[in-house]
Write a protein that binds this DNA or RNA. Sequence first.
DNA 1: TTGTATGCGTTATCAA
DNA 2: TTGATAACGCATACAA
Lengths: 340, 340
Amino acid sequence: MNIYDISKKTGVSIATVSRVINGSASVSEKTRAKVLAAIEESGYTPNVFARGLGLNTMKTIGIMCADSSDPYLARAVYYIEQDLRKNNYDSLLLCTGYDHDVKVKCMDQLLSKRVDAVILVGSNYVEFNDEMNDYIRNAAATVPVMLVNGVLNAPNIYSTLCDDRAAIYEVTTSFINNGRKKLVYLYNSRSYSGMKKLGGFTDALKDAGIPIKKDRIVFIDSHNVSVQGAKKIVSDLAKKGVKFDGIIAADDIISVGVLKYAKESGLSIPDDLFVAGYNNFDISECCEPELTSVDNKLEVLCRHCVSTLMSVFAEDKSVPKRTVFSAEIVERATTDFKIK
Amino acid sequence: MNIYDISKKTGVSIATVSRVINGSASVSEKTRAKVLAAIEESGYTPNVFARGLGLNTMKTIGIMCADSSDPYLARAVYYIEQDLRKNNYDSLLLCTGYDHDVKVKCMDQLLSKRVDAVILVGSNYVEFNDEMNDYIRNAAATVPVMLVNGVLNAPNIYSTLCDDRAAIYEVTTSFINNGRKKLVYLYNSRSYSGMKKLGGFTDALKDAGIPIKKDRIVFIDSHNVSVQGAKKIVSDLAKKGVKFDGIIAADDIISVGVLKYAKESGLSIPDDLFVAGYNNFDISECCEPELTSVDNKLEVLCRHCVSTLMSVFAEDKSVPKRTVFSAEIVERATTDFKIK
DNA sequence: TTGTATGCGTTATCAA
DNA sequence: TTGATAACGCATACAA
């Protein structure tokens, strides 16, 4: 069943059928009705491949995320897909993992599929080693590239992100203002965003005149980013003699590990120890006590990313290349901020 | 840059270029090398739309899931996408939500995009009211339809699922064998799978000679499926005078709400109350005490689903229409099974 | 308002 | 082993 069949069925030319399909104004109401009826009756659907060949687009956006099973990224994908579909774009999803070579390969794959744009979700695409970002810049030579929680300054690349640095700075400062000065920072990513968060922590210490000690800033590699892994790392830290009355982590799951450690070692939270996490997902409400966390406004980021993309498609000249939203600190039972 | 350009560049016909691209054997080594070099040099990529038009496929699979931000579905999407890509298929993802009309519309959208197959992820696609499943059967007339955690017996539909009924039966029986007879079951879905789970609960009671009381089987509607929502529901139940020494829930998040209730009302777990959840995700390890839960082998389901699909594509006649895997009960601190 | 003719970039058939 | 050409199904410029 193709456009010729409909043409024959109705006695009009394929051009007219095409016009009806595409809602052209210059078709008589009578003809339109006839064609529409034939289409309805036969269940005809235009062949998207042929259409794609002619128009050189299939209205499809490539979405890359490291791991859609990560709750943060999964939610991002959800918001983005919904908004894209509202704008009549479909989503081609690639879960690339964290390996650079795979990311490059996946990008190639998306481009060879002739997607209309690529959205890179998560802070793990922009590398500190800038050469490694070449593949993103190259892609942008072909299609618009949107970054959710990442920044890259190059033509045709648009960044939407959360001010992670300010958020961690604020949390840290609240800890300090409430008398917690023996602070530990646990982080699991050295991405652009990860380093921004770390900077927020160290800046807050600096501004408060607290010396920055290397052994209080602990990197957790990916296979230890779990409740048990984090618990062990804090436990080891304590065994090494590091004292702390406040722990801030770059991800909620790490903070939950801290809570588990605290329970095991009889520490009272928040009296003996303040704890804060990052992302503000389900688990921050599931743990005990419930976790103070940073809500980085993921939904806002994602919706803005899609609407920006649509502006780019519309060739709106005033599209901002970079948008930064502020985060929100959600206080729960693992801290007790008398002074904010 | 198209096949004609490469043809001109190398002095061979487009047919030969096409042969090289598609790895045809009947090309001389010399010609092949020349063409390959030209392709490499020019960065030419075959136009997938044109190819799609000719072959009537773009090697793309449509994936529908209700909500990719649900941790369970998100993980499923992750596994499926990875495996599809290993088999050179791309994934077109649609998050349909739980509304039937939207599901139908999304299915149409996938079919009109001419995907090679559709994978329905999650137990919420197959409805008890069988008429509502017509759109799935209709889709199967065009492309293979794969169900992950759902069953529908019709041509060209393949089901992969977990034996939810047996899992809940086993959990319930363990509760009973360990002296817990005042049981409550909390569930949030009346899907095929949801009703199977419920059946497992009631069958276990029956087989143990325990009367089934309506007020001990509580349905939780979607907007109450949260830690706080579930907590309130259990609290209300207790206020109504319902006594319980064991609560089994169809989803971990509900169980966490039960734990929060227990803490608030001074119940000791597992001494006063056994609690078990379903899905065995992050949160079952994050809560306090950690939650006994059912691992329904999601990764196994997903991988099997994709490999089955590949067999269908290969026109392997012996493809099973339905595969059921057994679940595994992961015991943690919210129960104390002396007898299994 | 409608129709004719062409191009889009492949793959595949058939002939050489 | 290679080349010429039809077919895939649509959108659209141009003509009527």
